[in-house]
Amino acid sequence: MGFLKKAVATIGTTAATMSVYAGQAFAGAGLDGINQQNVYNNHNNNPIYDKGVKVIEIVGGVGGIAFTLAVMIITLFIIFGSISPQKRATYWIALISCVAGAFVFFGAFGFADGIMTIATSKSK
């Protein structure tokens, strides 16, 4: 139970900190050598950008769906299965790991435009 309290406290502190400072970090992103005109331009005529966004969205979507399915299956095992006390920690660690994996993949799916904008922009 100590691990769960520490994990919840860490995630809560991180979420609170990011909600305050994330906007400031992204607001100053153009000041450290990145050409803002290339970051915020229209990417209609860039085939690498378009294909990259599609690849990131496909990989992020499939990975996110796979991890979400794993979360549902592990949750059913925890709820309805008679788990021995020796295996409880293993199931909970697997559940937390799958939630983190789903978060990463869905994050990549959601930020596909931003990822490709950074990848295809020129720096000074």
Rank of each mutant, 00 (worst) to 15 (best):
M1W: 09
G2E: 12
G2Q: 10
F3A: 08
K6V: 15
A7W: 11
A7G: 10
V8G: 01
A9L: 15
A9S: 14
A9V: 14
I11Y: 06
G12I: 12
T13A: 11
T14V: 08
T14R: 06
A15D: 11
A16D: 08
A16G: 12
T17V: 14
M18S: 12
V20P: 09
Y21D: 10
A22P: 06
A22I: 11
Q24I: 07
A25W: 15
A25C: 13
F26T: 10
F26W: 11
A27V: 03
A29S: 07
A29M: 09
A29G: 05
G30L: 03
G30D: 09
L31K: 14
L31W: 06
L31F: 10
D32R: 14
G33P: 04
G33F: 06
G33A: 09
I34N: 01
Q36W: 01
Q36C: 05
Q37R: 05
N38S: 12
N38G: 10
V39G: 00
V39S: 00
Y40C: 07
N41A: 14
N42T: 03
H43N: 09
H43L: 04
H43M: 12
N44M: 07
N44A: 13
N44W: 04
N45D: 15
P47L: 05
P47A: 11
I48L: 07
Y49A: 02
D50Y: 04
K51G: 09
G52S: 06
V53T: 07
K54I: 15
V55H: 01
V55A: 11
V55K: 01
I56C: 07
I56Y: 02
I56P: 05
E57G: 06
E57D: 09
I58A: 14
I58R: 00
G60E: 01
G61D: 06
G61V: 08
G63K: 00
G63H: 02
A66Q: 05
A66I: 15
A66H: 07
F67Q: 07
T68A: 13
V71Q: 00
V71G: 00
V71C: 05
V71E: 00
M72S: 11
M72T: 09
M72Y: 10
T75R: 01
L76S: 14
L76V: 14
F77H: 07
F80Q: 12
S82A: 14
I83E: 03
P85Q: 05
Q86W: 04
Q86G: 04
Q86V: 09
K87V: 10
K87D: 10
A89E: 08
T90V: 13
T90I: 13
Y91P: 02
Y91V: 05
W92V: 11
W92K: 03
W92C: 02
A94S: 10
L95V: 09
L95C: 10
I96K: 00
I96W: 03
V99E: 12
V99M: 15
A100V: 07
G101R: 02
G101P: 06
A102I: 13
F103V: 15
V104F: 11
V104I: 15
A108S: 12
A108F: 07
F109V: 11
G110F: 14
G110E: 10
F111D: 08
A112S: 11
A112W: 01
G114T: 08
T117Q: 11
A119K: 04
T120N: 06
S123W: 08
S123T: 14
K124C: 07
K124L: 13
